[in-house]
């Protein structure tokens, strides 16, 4: 069973519908027991880091997320979920976050007046190292993004894919062991996004049983 973690950060219907389109049941849940028992965990989210951390604290989900990541459960962060995996977000005056991955989450500071914040739309992901979730996906494929902040991993080796926007190149997909995370929305990225999610369903992170 796939658990989609619900922490009142945005609309999770489209994530669930995407898994359903792949013939795979996925439960939207805030229940620590359900998440701990899941075979796979998806940690999505749209919204602001500050309120997201407050909700995760209230729902007592912070230790749960750390536990499933530590025990090797295949884990997929999406958008705000991805940002929260890092140590610190600049959002809401600075928000300490989960710290599962080393790095920070700064805001876009475009020099070009026509680079809008949020970035909204389809942008290319350059594959910087092979990853099981990108199997069958061509380098330079476009995915759908909506975000004002971006992951800046402390260790550049965490980057799986990169994207150019607002004058910088940022890590649009990161991965370490059983944790993979995308700044883009695979559930809204057409067939290519579905392929990534199908890869996630079949993913057996190495060294784990």
């Amino acid at each position: 069973m796939i658990a989609i973690v619900d922490y009142k950060a945005g609309n999770l219907t489209s994530v669930q519908l995407a898994f359903r389109a792949l013939g795979c049941g996925a439960e939207i849940t805030s229940d620590p027991q359900v998440i701990l028992a899941a075979d796979r965990v998806v940690f999505p989210g749209v919204g602001a880091a500050g309120s997201a951390m407050r909700n995760l604290t209230e729902l007592q989900l912070l230790p749960v997320l750390k536990a499933v990541a530590a025990r090797g459960t295949p884990f997929l962060g999406i958008c705000l979920g991805t940002q929260i995996l890092f140590d610190f977000s600049e959002e809401d005056g600075g928000t300490p976050t989960l710290g599962l991955l080393p790095g920070r989450v700064p805001r876009f500071q475009p020099a070009d007046r026509w680079d809008k914040v949020p970035q909204m739309g389809w942008n290319q992901v350059r594959i910087v190292r092979p990853h099981p979730l990108l199997e069958g996906i061509a380098d330079g494929s476009e995915f759908y993004f909506v975000h004002s902040y971006y992951p800046a991993p402390a260790d550049p080796a965490l980057a799986v894919g990169t994207t150019d926007y607002a004058g910088i190149t940022f890590a649009s997909m990161v991965g370490r062991g059983n944790v993979a995370a995308t700044q883009f929305h695979p559930e809204k990225s057409g067939r290519i996004g579905l392929r990534l999610l199908a890869n996630f369903i079949g993913w057996k992170p190495e060294g784990l049983t």
């Binding site: 519908l17 389109a21 759908y144 990225s189």
Partner: peptide, 8 residues
Amino acid sequence: VAQAIRIP
């Protein structure tokens, strides 16, 4: 519509 398409 939401069930039929995978784009925003």
